[in-house]
Write a protein that binds this DNA or RNA. Structure first.
Lengths: 228, 228, 228, 228
DNA sequence: AATGAATGAGAGTTCATTCAT
DNA sequence: GATGAATGAACTCTCATTCAT
């Protein structure tokens, strides 16, 4: 890591707290400049980052490559993200966020915990199968960053795990799942199993369609294992 | 079990005849491969690497830091390992190797597949709980080296997964396990679950003893889930 | 990971030729003191390289020293030259190129081959006497880069020798020179003799003006030797 | 140049005085055990050095490679030569010495200066054709070392040039050669021409036998050019 | 806001040299 | 004398980040 500027921990949330004092004759000052027209660029940068990170890994990717893929200048990246590290964190949070929202919407319509848990598994693997680049970023790239980043990204990730754990709790309360196991343990183990399977797939060692079959088998084992 | 402490009597590794490239025909030209001074430098470097990598991550660790921790000069590292990457690979393989040997010995004495699978889980988490630094290297650090990920299914690691899969096969043949799941999928999912749990623990979010409890719960769920 | 694209070098245009000396719109008076930092970085680096290479030799010169002498950052060197080696190559080719252009212009006005050959000798030694550092780079330093030696007959240098050989051919055809000697041999031997003389001079063993006298004597001998 | 210890000559300048050994207070005790039994080893090292220097160049050759080629340990080199630089200087001096002795013996039997000069040319090119490795060292490698080395080796080299110049003087005094040229200039130009031709040949761009033809042509031109 | 040329602190790695055996 | 494992200073090249335009 070169010139590691401001360490990530100090920044609680919004990445864009850059100097807002000098607004030279541009559009009206916006409380959230990044969301105006910049929102477009921000998203373009994130999309480009997914692509190149997936291809070359985090440490193997130069910021200039992300910039080029996004069609912006190198310096522009730093108008939206404080550092390369933060770019990865933002990417991770943004994508996990969407996954979480999508998942919650899907689960709401399902009758009981077993169905929901099965859907969780299908969703996670299905998403990955649909977006291989994103799969790589989430399963592989995020681990290449420093421990600090991982911890910084943990809250958002924790929310995802919590959602799974919540399904387990619901199942336990409804009498569908055994109560002698920790919901969070189940959530984490499930995630780990899925992640491991996805990693194998993402690295190209499994054929298309394998994820769907794997999802079914994993769900079968897990749901039976959770019977009271 | 034999001497479990740091005792590598198996292969008296010679100090890496770099760029020797001599044709692999004939005995080693060096009649005195024995150490002349100092102790086992290679092992000392590996031990130091575990410590420092666990603390700062792979990319965050300078080779000079490993050297310093090992009490050798920077250049000495390169007498035993071709590069920083290879140091990590060697570390990984060396440790997984030991785990595999140990595991095979343990499993041989157990009566059936369910007992073996439970033992596998206990062993992996138990090892990690005993060596937190090693846990971190195996679960976290190893993924920070892109080259390594490419060889993720490297012989050593593949052998470990195969060993687990073999237990599943044995259980299926003996009628203890259901046969509608892929042994390798189970092996990989199990590893992923264990890895994920260990990762959580290694990152400091779980207290001591948690791994043992986790192992039991995970084994309970998994074994029930595998019932025919 | 190599900077594959977007390399400023190879383009005769300078990266920053805009902010030259006169502002196209605005008062010429500059509130800021003449920065004079702008300008031709590539040429400044080459000029600095001549100086430093001549002083310390190729292997004895650190890239940072060239950068310092050129008044740029270390990294800037690599914006214009791919490597230290290429810096030397570029230096060589650039200078030989200029010499060649100059020489061709000079020779065009001369009546016959003997006059031209004499002029070639005067030019080469004259140039070197005027730029002692350059003399050293061309005669001494250039041979310190093994890769360069492999390309010793590189286009530029080959073109220079060819130009000399062409004069010999012209002389032979016109009956001014004997025909029982190879033009290329004469060209090479002439260059070698000049180079050797310049080397002696560059190493400080000859006084000022000696090169001019040497040129005349060498020309006298060579021209008489070439008589039919 | 790494850790350049004890530079060969006592240089008033301090271009490379880093890590300056701080003048050993004790007596010089210049260890030159070379003439004991080591004479054999010394020669073996020199012979090996010719070979590997010719193959890889001076800077491209590791001391350990010379040691290996000589069949001695790395450290042994330093029992016979103070440094890698001094090894090259010694090599140069030793070989030029032999060439000089041989040449003087050959010239003694020849009748006049023209015959001697022709023989000089034949000898130098002939020697090189017979020992291509040595040719490379003398023509190529010696130039890759620092200026310091070149100056240090100059005296010995000067003796060789002096011998050639002496032939010219003899010819001038006997009325065979014109007197309006400097003998040393002729000597140096001759050497340079020969060297340049040999360099071309050594680099593999000329076929076998070419040197002999080149020698004849060069001698023809030179001798005619020197006629009174 | 956007640009991209310029920056410069490093880090991995090499290898001449040393010295305990 | 001989050895060769160990040393560690030095050096090239990279690339995240900055800032003048």
């Amino acid at each position: 890591m070169r010139r590691t500027a401001a360490s990530p921990p100090a920044t609680p949330t919004k990445p864009n707290s850059r100097r807002a004092e000098s607004a030279p004759s541009g559009p009206p000052a916006n409380p959230k400049p990044a969301r105006t027209r910049g929102g477009d660029k921000r998203e373009r940068i994130l999309a480009a980052a997914v692509k190149v990170f997936a291809k070359s890994g985090f440490h193997g990717t130069r910021v200039s490559e992300v910039a080029k893929a996004a069609g912006v200048a190198d310096g522009t990246i730093y108008l939206y993200f404080r550092s390369k590290d933060e770019l990865l964190v933002s990417l991770f949070e943004d994508r996990v966020d969407k996954l979480l929202v999508h998942m919650n919407a899907e689960l709401a319509n399902l009758p009981d915990a077993p169905a929901k848990l099965r859907r969780v598994i299908e969703l996670q693997l299905g998403l990955l199968e649909g977006e291989r680049d994103l799969a790589e970023v989430i399963t592989v790239i995020i681990r290449q960053s420093s421990k600090l980043i991982k911890e910084y990204a943990a809250p958002k990730f924790g929310a995802y795990l919590d959602a799974i754990a919540q399904v387990v709790v619901e199942g336990q309360n409804a009498g569908h799942f055994r109560k002698d196991v920790s919901p969070h343990l189940v959530a984490r183990a499930t995630y780990g199993a899925l992640d491991s399977i996805a990693l194998l797939w993402a690295l190209g060692r499994a054929e298309q369609g394998a994820l769907v079959r794997s999802a079914k088998q994993l769900a079968d084992v897990l749901l039976r294992g959770l019977l009271p």
